[in-house]
Design a protein around this nucleic acid. Structure first.
Length: 230
DNA sequence: TGCCAGGCCGGGT
DNA sequence: ACCCGGCATGGC
């Protein structure tokens, strides 16, 4: 049994359990970018308040944010925390978008995925997870998102050791999930849902996880045994 | 009540 | 190459 089969089975089980989960469906790509930056280290609920603030003022577009002073901006995004650094990060991103693509997300979307990823990573405040989230959920490009949940969950299942770096895990997933944007989007959302619900930091044995029936390392074995039923 | 949330950067070892 | 503090609000 190879890791690809197991990974496919994991997806299958999660999909059956949680259903079709996806994020930012049909959301304006620029709004996705703002959301991605605001949600760094922060609960999504808090981000929604900030997004609403920006929308109410009609500021949720590149041009407006570009000409907004940083203090006003940080005031509007206060609910999502780290508001001063995030105001700066939003400014950095918007400045990039304006200067490289005339503030046009459609133009940005024309870039080749890997090229754009490197450009995004060069922006202060955009790390790997944010860059990949923008690519995947904002622009529908095949760039898998990895986060702490993904690392922890895959490690507990036994698919990775857990000490691999970001890009290693990303490549593992991209190689074994196939290059389907839809698959990446849903898989990441499913993993996050699983981790938030059952695969918590404080519960290393995953005792509450209905999928694992005990320690998650045995999850892989469970899948192998029952593979034919998936 | 304390802990954590859909991270990232910069400086120190 | 890792490790850590700082950044900050709101919900359970």
């Amino acid at each position: 049994m190879n890791r690809k089969k197991i990974l496919e089975s994991v997806f299958s089980v999660l999909y059956r359990h949680f259903g079709h989960l996806d994020w930012w469906i049909d959301v304006d790509p620029f709004e996705v970018c703002v959301g991605v930056i605001l949600t760094q280290g922060t609960n999504w609920r808090n981000v929604e308040i900030s997004i609403l603030n920006l929308k109410e003022k009609g500021f949720l577009n590149p041009q407006k944010i570009a000409f907004l002073d940083e203090d006003t901006l940080s005031e509007l995004i206060k609910p999502s925390g780290f508001f001063k650094v995030k105001a700066k990060r939003l400014k950095n991103f918007v400045q990039f978008l304006m200067s490289e693509y005339d503030g046009d997300m459609d133009k940005m979307a024309l870039e080749e995925t890997h090229v754009l990823r490197e450009k995004l990573l060069a922006i202060k405040g955009i790390g790997k997870e944010s860059a990949d989230s923008i690519l995947l959920y904002g622009l529908n490009k095949p760039s898998m998102v990895v986060d702490e949940y993904t690392r922890r969950t895959l490690a507990r299942i036994g698919l990775i050791k857990g000490n691999e770096d970001y890009d290693e895990i990303k490549e593992f997933l991209e190689k074994n999930l196939g290059r389907s944007v839809q698959m990446y989007r849903v898989f990441h959302a499913l993993i996050v849902e699983l981790a938030k619900t059952y695969c918590k930091k404080k519960d290393p044995l995953c005792t509450s996880c209905p999928l694992s029936k005990g320690y998650c390392k045995f999850y892989a074995n469970l899948l192998q045994k029952n593979l034919q039923s998936f």
